[in-house]
Design a protein around this nucleic acid. Structure first.
Length: 403
RNA sequence: GUGGGAUUAGCUCAGUUGGUUAGAGCACUGGUUUGUGGUGCCGGGGGUCACGGGUUCGAGCCCCGCAUCCCACCCCA
């Protein structure tokens, strides 16, 4: 038997219902916020992710599905969604057009990781990107949109907030932190030594208690923001307060992708194990120019759909459509053609086998139909059809023309 | 990539110190003396015990390997 590749799941039946329900709910909300759908390819030039996500990041350095295609192009399956959207934005010259452009997307992403709960090799994200808005109000809007989507799906969460600073304050802070850590390099864990070289700010959320103790006196970015970043961060907090969004400041919150600056946020759930981040995002004002576009402020987020799946509260399914069956072998053809007509206007399922009424009612109940429609010998004689509404239990007999 | 746990019917799981023909509930399916469901009663089908080796007179059970899932780390949505 051939089975699916490791970390790659089929989505069907109940899972598909939940998946679709989430996409539909999130789509509606994104549209209410004035965002438009964008679809970009699953396959992109590898250089796109090296330059955006960052070569030092784990995603690019060891998790990409990368290969040389038949035209000898270095390509890879997208490991995240933002880079492709930004590439499309620049390629369509929307950066030069100016103005505000707001997009949402959803689709499969690929990372060659070791799978566990809430972490797959092919997984799905719903994401949003906004281009051309410098105001921190847009950052707040992003956060409120995530909150809306999660609430609409009945999902509980905690919101964590941080500011990563910008070109004025981040590099300076980074140097300070590196110096601080270098001084105690012989005492910190192996992972942290590696982090200093790759993504120094990551050392701050090391889980090793010894390291945590040592970092207590480390400089904090939140206290070293330049005035512009500090003002924006204060404004953001004020907006969230006014709109009843509660949050916690997590000075150790770092986005794993290189392109983020200023606002960084993460929505976490305490109910799905260690892969607890269900949505994450922030501002990335520098990314468009990294990818050769005209400098354009941008902010966005992404949600991991598989991680949300088991948290989604689905509304009770309602009875819908028709179930049709024959109680007499000779009525089957008539049922078939009536059902074909009904299908033009509503969901209709047929049982091809002649059965007694009780079995048809059972069948109708099983497919959750609203109406059970049956033709037996009596109905054949009178050219009628018997219909029972399974919700309010009322019954009627209609002529075949009326049906 | 590192460490640990698990794997028996479609699903959730029992399975005694290694000993006849591997069980249950749910699901599926048929019937219920013949026109009223979701909730009665009776029956039926369904397992290479993940896979490959080994030990043994004999393995679902013990040993080795391997795959997948789960947990923690790493990383991230």
């Amino acid at each position: 038997m051939i089975s699916s590749l490791r970390g790659m799941n089929d989505i069907l039946e109940e899972d598909y219902e939940r998946f679709t329900y989430f996409i539909n709910t999130a789509t509606k909300i994104a549209q209410n916020y004035g965002f438009h759908f964008i679809q970009t390819p699953l396959l992109e030039e590898t250089a796109l992710f090296k330059r955006s996500v960052g070569e030092s990041s784990d995603i690019v350095s060891k998790e990409m599905y990368q290969f040389i295609d038949k035209g000898e192009n270095d390509v890879c399956l997208r490991p995240e969604g933002t880079a492709g959207v930004v590439r499309a934005f620049i390629q369509k010259k929307l950066d030069k057009a100016g103005g505000i452009h707001r997009f949402f997307y959803h689709g499969a992403m690929f990372r060659y990781e070791r799978p566990q709960k809430g972490r797959l090799r092919q997984f799905h994200q719903f994401g949003v990107e906004s281009f051309g808005v410098e105001s921190v109000y847009e950052d707040a809007t992003m956060i409120m949109m995530v909150a809306d989507i999660l609430s609409a799906c009945g999902i509980g969460y905690r919101l964590q907030l941080n500011s990563l600073g910008d070109l004025n304050c981040m590099p300076l802070y980074r140097e300070n932190l590196i110096n601080f850590v270098k001084n105690i390099e012989d005492k910190i864990c192996e992972d942290c030594v590696r982090r200093v070289a790759t993504n120094p700010i990551r050392v701050l959320d090391c889980k090793n208690p010894t390291c945590q103790e040592l970092y207590k006196n480390a400089p904090k970015l939140i206290n070293n923001l330049c005035s512009g970043c500090k003002d924006d961060f204060d404004t953001l907090k004020k907006i969230l307060d006014k709109n009843g969004i509660s949050y916690e400041i997590n000075t150790n919150l770092v986005r794993g992708l290189d392109y983020y600056s200023k606002t960084a946020f993460e929505f976490v759930s305490d109910e799905i194990g260690s892969q607890s981040a269900i949505a994450g995002g922030g501002r990335y004002d520098r990314l468009i120019e990294f990818l050769d576009g005209r400098p354009t402020p941008a902010v966005g987020f992404a949600m991991g759909i598989e991680r949300l799946m088991e948290l989604i509260q689905m509304p009770d399914s309602k009875r819908e459509g028709y179930y049709m069956g024959a109680m007499d072998e000779e009525a089957v053809d008539l049922v078939m053609s009536l059902a074909q007509k009904k299908r033009k206007i509503d969901k209709t399922t047929i049982d091809y086998k002649a059965k007694n009424l009780k079995n048809h009612l059972k069948g109708a109940d099983k497919v959750n139909a609203r109406f059970c429609c049956v033709i037996g010998t009596n109905e054949m004689e009178n050219q009628t059809i018997w219909i029972k509404n399974l919700e309010n239990k009322t019954e009627q007999t209609l002529s075949i023309e009326e049906f």
